[in-house]
Amino acid sequence: MRVNIFQNIINHKINTITAEELLKYADQFHITVTQKQAEKIVKYLKGKKINLFDDTQRAQIIREIAKAAGPQTAKEVNKLFTELVK
C-alpha cells in the first residue's frame, strides 16, 4: 500500500509540475534544462495521466520530450525521472 501511495504522489507531481519546479528538481539532481526547455516539457506533461513507474509510458514521454526540447534534454530529463522512480 505504501508503495502505491508513493507512486501516486510522484505521478501527481509530474502531471501538475510547473516549469519552475522542473528547473528546481533539475538543479537538485545536477541536470541541465533551460527555462525554454522546461516550459516545453511542462506543456507536454500538463493534463496527461502519466505513470512514470510504467517503463513503456516513461519511454513514450521521453520520445515526446525529445521532439519538443531535443534529444540531449530528453536524456537529461530521463535521468531525473529515473531518480524520482528509484
Rank of each mutant, 00 (worst) to 15 (best):
residue 26 A to W: 04
residue 27 D to V: 01
residue 27 D to S: 12
residue 28 Q to V: 09
residue 28 Q to L: 15
residue 28 Q to D: 11
residue 29 F to H: 11
residue 29 F to V: 11
residue 29 F to D: 11
residue 30 H to G: 07
residue 30 H to M: 07
residue 30 H to F: 08
residue 30 H to I: 07
residue 31 I to D: 03
residue 32 T to I: 12
residue 32 T to A: 13
residue 33 V to G: 03
residue 33 V to F: 00
residue 33 V to E: 03
residue 34 T to F: 08
residue 35 Q to A: 13
residue 36 K to A: 15
residue 36 K to I: 12
residue 37 Q to G: 02
residue 37 Q to I: 01
residue 37 Q to P: 00
residue 37 Q to S: 12
residue 38 A to F: 01
residue 38 A to N: 04
residue 38 A to H: 01
residue 38 A to W: 01
residue 38 A to K: 00
residue 38 A to C: 04
residue 39 E to T: 12
residue 39 E to Y: 03
residue 39 E to A: 09
residue 39 E to W: 03
residue 39 E to I: 11
residue 40 K to N: 13
residue 40 K to P: 00
residue 40 K to D: 13
residue 41 I to D: 01
residue 41 I to F: 04
residue 41 I to R: 00
residue 41 I to E: 04
residue 41 I to V: 14
residue 41 I to C: 05
residue 42 V to R: 00
residue 42 V to F: 05
residue 43 K to E: 14
residue 43 K to I: 08
residue 43 K to D: 13
residue 43 K to Q: 12
residue 44 Y to Q: 03
residue 45 L to F: 08
residue 45 L to C: 06
residue 45 L to Y: 05
residue 45 L to P: 01
residue 45 L to I: 10
residue 45 L to A: 07
residue 46 K to L: 08
residue 46 K to C: 02
residue 46 K to M: 10
residue 47 G to C: 02
residue 47 G to L: 04
residue 47 G to R: 00
residue 47 G to E: 04
residue 47 G to F: 00
residue 48 K to F: 02
residue 48 K to W: 00
residue 48 K to T: 10
residue 48 K to G: 11
residue 48 K to V: 04
residue 49 K to E: 14
residue 49 K to L: 05
residue 50 I to L: 11
residue 51 N to T: 06
residue 51 N to D: 15
residue 52 L to W: 05
residue 52 L to C: 12
residue 52 L to N: 09
residue 52 L to P: 03
residue 52 L to R: 02
residue 52 L to M: 13
residue 53 F to D: 06
residue 53 F to C: 07
residue 53 F to H: 08
residue 53 F to L: 07
residue 53 F to K: 02
residue 53 F to R: 03
residue 53 F to P: 05
residue 54 D to H: 08
residue 54 D to Y: 02
residue 55 D to N: 10
residue 56 T to S: 13
residue 57 Q to S: 09
residue 57 Q to F: 05
residue 58 R to V: 04
residue 58 R to M: 09
residue 59 A to K: 15
residue 59 A to R: 11
residue 59 A to P: 01
residue 60 Q to I: 14
residue 60 Q to N: 12
residue 61 I to K: 00
residue 61 I to E: 08
residue 61 I to T: 14
residue 62 I to A: 12
residue 62 I to M: 10
residue 62 I to L: 14
residue 63 R to S: 15
residue 63 R to T: 14
residue 63 R to G: 10
residue 63 R to V: 11
residue 64 E to S: 13
residue 64 E to V: 05
residue 64 E to Y: 05
residue 65 I to S: 04
residue 65 I to K: 03
residue 66 A to V: 06
residue 66 A to K: 08
residue 66 A to E: 11
residue 66 A to L: 07
residue 66 A to S: 15
residue 67 K to E: 14
residue 67 K to L: 14
residue 67 K to I: 12
residue 67 K to Q: 13
residue 67 K to T: 15
residue 68 A to D: 12
residue 68 A to C: 05
residue 68 A to H: 08
residue 68 A to I: 10
residue 68 A to N: 10
residue 68 A to P: 01
residue 69 A to I: 07
residue 69 A to D: 06
residue 69 A to V: 04
residue 71 P to M: 11
residue 71 P to N: 12
residue 71 P to A: 15
residue 72 Q to F: 08
residue 72 Q to A: 15
residue 73 T to R: 03
residue 73 T to C: 15
residue 73 T to E: 02
residue 74 A to Q: 06
residue 74 A to H: 05
residue 74 A to S: 10
residue 76 E to T: 06
residue 76 E to I: 05
residue 76 E to P: 00
residue 76 E to C: 04
residue 76 E to D: 13
